[in-house]
Design a protein around this nucleic acid. Structure first.
Lengths: 333, 333
DNA sequence: CTGTTAGCGCGTTCAT
DNA sequence: ATGAACGCGCTAACAG
């Protein structure tokens, strides 16, 4: 019962992980040949190959990814940084990136850093320290210097809008101004005039959407109303309007909540539109009209841009995809 | 303009990352001393130390985490696997684990694997291949063999319930049976009798909650009603009951949605209770009564169990924390 | 005390 | 099919 490696409780520590040398010894060949065989190199005799595979299997050998990465300088890993686990849209983008990465034979590691600059850039470093082959940023909280420093270590693609375009990093975004215009046009087309724009933050995307709202409202020759406070401080504001265009679904959801609390009928007295068309839009009652960002496409493009960089491209690319409006209960019915 | 390292677009590739040797050369010392100095070893002359730090700074040197991990066999990394990015409760648990890990000086890497066995266990391997010091599993989809194999490589802690306790891995969980009893007692205490339990799945936690429901109902000498289909196939079922206890908040939210669609008043005609007390509970209208799992505590315990294992503990531990009921609008008002 | 040399850790790669 | 060198940082043993 002195069976190290399998204590009564099935403990973890004991067994030193077998290395390539153990496999080589067991198969009676050199470690070089083991390396070749395990990676399916053609020039390995079938006898040796069989013995090697057998030995590796017996020992439960797994090559040490660290050692390999150290030598090859590539990991087939792409890091994804995100600052918000609780905004469904962000996690949906992440899922899309994962899917595209997997299709490209890349493995995704996530690092999450709440909305704190320091922590977040620490997470970026953690990923880069692992020598990820590329980085996808799903957060607008990283500052240009941090991003550029990162880009010096690995290709970086930003999904979503950064404050200013950062030289050296690619981006995939939707056309926020167009999205805002779709919203305003739709609302005006259904007879709304006093359209309030709600945006609690000055995140880049929010700014772009606000500009889009202003432009579109001007085009319709309508008065602009902008509420920059958080939705829960809307107070009696809502009653003065017949529609709200919120910066994103999260805020639209909150606006809806407040409107209903205030006894307003939606969409009767107040129409509400969100942005992102996230899962939240489908949880709202009534269902939330929202601007759809083509996340699958965006995720796929992000990975594509990354692999292009890895392939040698050096010019920056900034893809802008067209959003679409999904009309639901908060503006019709 | 042959300035490699800073192409016109600020390209990434060029500059070979400086190694410890570069720093040593620049400071005119051996690489050993650089290593010592950078890690704050006492026995380094202040002159040398200054020159080394200066050199490192000039070069923007960052030690290669891979090389270090390879040597030291520890990474100060803890991997977190999760199978659902869209269940708020899961991401809340992850956030709690992150916070606790950070407090313990550990850095968290996330791997996400939808609800597919194969993919998920692939993600586990990816993390282990990076030599994470420990693994926290926030998913009930990993099978015992996979978990045990993982535990052979690093300490594994499961947050939440696995089908069977897996020897060799620790766990932190809430008492699902108690949670269910709290729900039933509360409902009965407010005059409900025909309480339907809704559970679309047979995940371990769901099973435990169902058992708890049955036990509690029996204790009250009440008839048990169990609906195992997804909430959207509830049909007219709801009208036959005066309360629903759903397996988790996601399903409770859906039940609420259907009840309202069906013209039932909540909580008047139908009371609804969820489980997890996730962000979703606060998005529902009326607000969802739900069983609170102490996630911060659970996250902290998970990290604690991990560090204990790293410290040498070999007996399994299974922490069970007490849930509490948070009463809100779907059962009162 | 301060600093150096030598070699390890593990897998890949190249010349033989 | 193999030995030797390599990638990069850590560390035990040793010299000044």
């Amino acid at each position: 019962m002195v069976d190290v490696g399998r204590s009564p409780t099935g403990s973890p520590q004991p067994v030193r992980k077998p290395t390539i040398l153990d496999v080589a010894a067991r198969a009676g060949v050199s470690k070089s040949l083991v390396s070749l065989a395990l990676r399916g190199d053609a020039g390995v005799g079938s006898g040796a190959r069989a013995r090697i595979l057998q030995a590796a299997d017996d020992l439960g050998y797994r090559s040490n990814a660290l050692a390999r990465a150290l030598r090859q300088k590539r990991t087939m890993l792409v890091g994804v940084v995100l600052s918000s686990l609780d905004n469904p849209y962000h996690t949906e983008v992440v899922a899309a990136v994962e899917q595209a990465a997997e299709a490209a034979g890349l493995s995704v590691l996530l690092a999450h850093g709440s909305r704190d600059r320091g922590r977040l850039s620490g997470r970026v470093d953690a990923l880069l320290d692992l020598n990820v082959d590329g980085l996808v940023v799903v957060s607008s909280w990283l500052e240009a210097p941090t991003l550029q420093a990162a880009a010096r270590r690995a290709p970086v693609v930003m999904v979503g809008r950064s404050l200013e375009p950062v030289p050296g990093i690619d981006s995939v975004n939707n056309d926020d101004e167009l999205g805002a215009r779709l919203v305003v046009d739709h609302l005006v087309g259904t007879g709304r005039q006093r359209i309030l724009h709600v945006s609690s933050s000055t995140r880049p995307a929010g700014v772009a959407r606000r500009l889009g709202y202003e432009t579109a409202m001007r085009a319709h020759d309508l008065e602009r109303f902008i509420q920059v406070a958080a939705p829960d401080r809307l107070g009696a504001h809502l009653a003065d309007h017949d529609a709200v265009f919120a910066r994103n679904d999260v805020e639209a959801f909150d606006v809806l909540d407040h409107a209903l609390d205030g006894g307003l009928s939606v969409p009767g007295e107040l129409a509400i539109v969100g942005y992102d068309n996230s899962a939240l839009a489908l949880r709202a009652r009534p269902r939330l009209t929202s601007v759809h960002q083509p996340r699958e496409l965006m995720g796929a493009r992000a990975v594509q841009l990354l692999t292009e960089r890895l392939g040698g491209r050096t010019e920056d690319r900034h893809d802008v995809l067209a959003p679409t409006l999904v009309v639901r209960g908060t503006t019709s019915g």
